[in-house]
């Protein structure tokens, strides 16, 4: 069985967010990058499947050379080899088209990725790849098990869960608790540098979407504390100052 895990290279969750170039570009100065946390769940489940079924796991990232440390971390966690599509991941359509192009050439049984990246959070790449490859795409998947050629999954839905089945090949957008994040061990770290990391050129794609600008949320205003025994004052302020009542 061949599994492809698509990983994004995203700012650490504690990063301070700022923009440059007239608010059209994310300021990467001093920012620590990590494997997208949802992608990390997908990778962890893929490694578990590798351990139980002997599948091979390939990781794929669309990014420039600076994403290689992130890719090598995925190799250290246990992926067998990696592909870097040498291009700036401009938008979801572009990224999906790159993944689809690679996947077509290699016919993977299972393509796993996070339900969304945590930088631009579009959450549509799995569905786009599914459409491009004409195979099922399921998300957000909280549980994923194999039963022969059938994949049994549990999806999170509003107020509950949904159990779905589909035959491979398929795509899953993953989230917790599908597997526990894996910490790369020493053996993995030391073998990462010798595992194949193939750099391929992107395929030409015109998405037609153009980024206008980013806006930071307004800074938090001052908070007024009203003692619990002064409900009337609270109501008064909500009416006159906050004007929400």
């Amino acid at each position: 069985m061949k599994i492809l895990v698509c990983i994004s290279h995203v700012p650490d969750t504690t990063s301070r967010i700022a923009f440059t170039d007239n608010n059209t570009k994310f300021d990467t100065k001093g920012v620590q990058f990590i494997i997208g946390p949802y992608d990390d769940y997908a990778l962890a489940r893929a490694i578990e499947l590798k351990e139980s079924t002997g599948a091979t796991v390939t990781v794929l990232n669309v990014g420039l050379a600076e994403t290689e440390p992130t890719i090598r971390k995925a190799l250290a966690i246990g992926a067998d080899d990696a592909i870097r599509v040498n291009a700036e991941p401009v938008d979801s359509f572009f990224v999906a088209a790159q993944i689809a192009a690679q996947a077509k050439a290699e016919s993977y049984d299972l393509i796993l990725m996070g339900r969304e990246s945590i930088d631009y959070n579009s959450g549509v790449v799995h569905a786009l790849v599914g459409t491009m490859l004409n195979i099922p795409a399921v998300s957000p998947v909280m549980k994923l098990d194999l039963d022969g050629n059938t994949v049994k999954m549990v999806r999170e839905i509003e107020g509950g869960t949904e159990q779905v089945e589909a035959a491979m090949p398929l795509i899953a957008g993953c989230q917790e608790p599908i597997a526990e994040w894996k910490i790369p061990n020493m053996r993995g770290i030391m073998s990462a540098r010798t595992k194949p990391l193939k750099v391929v050129p992107p395929v030409a794609v015109e998405s037609g979407v153009k980024l206008q600008r980013f806006e930071l949320p307004p800074p938090k205003g001052a908070v007024k504390l009203i003692p619990p025994d002064k409900v009337e004052e609270l109501v008064h302020l909500l009416k006159t100052e906050a004007k929400v009542l």
Binding site: R72, W181, I183, P184, N185, M186, I189, R193
Partner: peptide, 17 residues
């Protein structure tokens, strides 16, 4: 280097987890 940083990160993640 990258490998040393990765080892340090593994230690950090171990402590956090």
């Amino acid at each position: 280097n990258e490998e040393q940083r990765m080892i340090a990160q593994t230690c950090r993640e171990f402590l956090e987890q």
